[in-house]
Design a protein around this nucleic acid. Structure first.
Lengths: 189, 189, 189, 189
DNA sequence: AATGAATGAGCGTTCATTCAT
DNA sequence: TATGAATGAACGCTCATTCAT
């Protein structure tokens, strides 16, 4: 993140997200954000109506963008296996490129996940649809697609989580194939 | 949980844990706990020095107990495969018996997980040791035990998580074999 | 006002009213009330939900009580003239006994007067009804009762106002007959 | 008020006064004034040093102008009765022509009235002097001129107040003679 | 042991004011 | 002269904690 090129709103967004991931939304003070961003406390309110709106906009906007990217990635491939591999690769790259954003969207437990409406594009849905389609098409043994998705997603995200808190040292991209292979074995039950 | 048989301290502990899981520790007020437990606001301080100490004691005590149980369960079996199956079965039963406690220990993102010292018995370590031993003994293909543990744990916990928030309807015990099989396939990479 | 005998809620009510009259509601800070009452800032919120609720309860409760008293006073007399005299006497006594309360109810320009619902007993209505009845009964020359009420009330309240800010030095009770006579002459148009 | 012909300073003055009357000075934000006037927030400070100075200049300038007009009106007549009638007529016309200005000067309870120095010409003084002179000259029965002035002024202003908030529907000019007659009866005590 | 009124530091937010453009 | 983003002191209010009963 090149803080030099950022305008004030982007600077606030980025700084806030880092603190939100580090300490949690509730535990992050407006004063923390302001001082970390080098701005006055009141400045945030010129760009966001409230701390809650800031946290929500950060979440919903980026989640949808990530969901759309993931969907685009999936569309570039034809078989379920290729789609899954590409999506996992995309998860890994996204984590390595910006683990703070990745954590805020997929690993944090702010209450915002509950507020995602079904009409919003959503990475979890994209993954689930691919798995469900694979089951229908016969490429993946039939089973409960929710359970299958949950297992695969847990497998991936928990590794990301371990990487984020230091329990794992490799880059996610270097683990991409391991994760793909493991996910596929999970699905070949 | 039979609230009739509880003494005040147990009542506080249980009520607090339910609220901690439902809303998060920071978001739970002493007043919430007191009114849900039917006691006065000041009463908690007869039993715990502070809200933080309450949250920590709830976490550390129960985590260690869970770790010890898991270790006992693992010891009852001799092969890595049997150990793993038994542990996953234990995870599932623990969830089904008390998903609030399970969530507080293994799914919540209070900062307390960072405070577990290496000397404390800890479910994650128990699982990791079994996997590492399996790799050393040749029952599990060699690989990074941290990554392997993370994948298996993520697979299990994320399913528990989905069950807790309604995304999955089955009991965990009914999914126990599915989870065992999938975990084993993950490890047979 | 004997501050010794007051409980905390009464103390807050009284202190707040004095400051509200002196400086206005918006201009009075919670910290002003707390320090003038010798309590902590948070204590007010144990007794009133907000500053606004405090200002409103102070207004509505006392206004209704004053309206009821005025109505009782009016009922003790049979002719419009006697009713009017008694009411004016009551206004004067009320002012002399507690000019702060009188000012808060009848001379201040907090926006609360606009929120009085028609079902609340209200001193202005009591006065208006007496005047309107007098016009119907032939004791007061017919005219617009709203205008008549407004003139009489203005005459009385503005003298009270002058007394409150030092422009007039006499007690209102000593001016009671002057005000009665003047009011009656206004109505005998 | 023809907003087209106004320069920026006049536009600010007028817009501010309307909002001050509608909501009170403290309750009116610079942002309210700016957006209602269609100017930027900082622009006010090119013309007035502060919000307070704006409120004060609006008050003091116009109050003195109004006092001077009232004095001129009074001087055009020779008897106390004629002077009083003419002044009341002037009050009524002034209200009907610009009730916002009238309200700001004579009905509002911004703290500015307390800051009028004795050397400033002032409508209340003009009225009081006429009444006092009438008492000295024998045209008005002797009495306390402050009390008499307060009664007459209250009578008039409270009717204006009722008209401003909708309690009375007639124009003040149409009530001018009623107010004159009533005032004179008040003074003939 | 239990109570609940009282405390006050610290929060999110507002808004009069400044100043680079 | 006009702009509007930025400022930061000060506000109303919350809530973990204390303590007299």
């Amino acid at each position: 993140m090149n803080r030099q090129k950022m305008n004030t709103k982007e600077l606030i967004a980025r700084t806030a997200m880092e603190l939100f991931v580090e300490k949690g939304v509730t535990e992050t003070r407006i004063r923390d954000i302001a001082s970390a961003a080098g701005i006055a406390e009141g400045t945030m309110y010129r760009h966001y109506a409230s701390k809650d709106e800031l946290a929500w906009e950060l979440f919903s906007t980026n989640l949808e963008a990530f969901g759309l990217e993931l969907d685009r990635v999936q569309k570039e491939h034809s078989t379920p296996r290729a789609k899954l591999d590409a999506m996992i690769h995309h998860f890994c790259r996204a984590f390595d490129e910006d683990w703070v954003l990745f954590s805020y969207l997929l690993l944090s437990r702010h209450g915002h996940s509950k507020k995602v409406t079904p009409d919003m594009v959503n990475p979890v849905d994209v993954l689930r649809r691919t798995i469900a389609d694979g089951m229908e098409g016969g490429d993946i043994p039939k089973g409960d697609p929710d359970v299958a998705t949950s297992m695969v997603l847990g497998l991936i995200l928990h590794v990301a989580d371990s990487r984020a808190d230091g329990g794992i040292e490799q880059s996610l991209l270097s683990l991409s194939e391991t994760l793909s292979a493991a996910s596929w074995r999970v699905l070949s039950g």
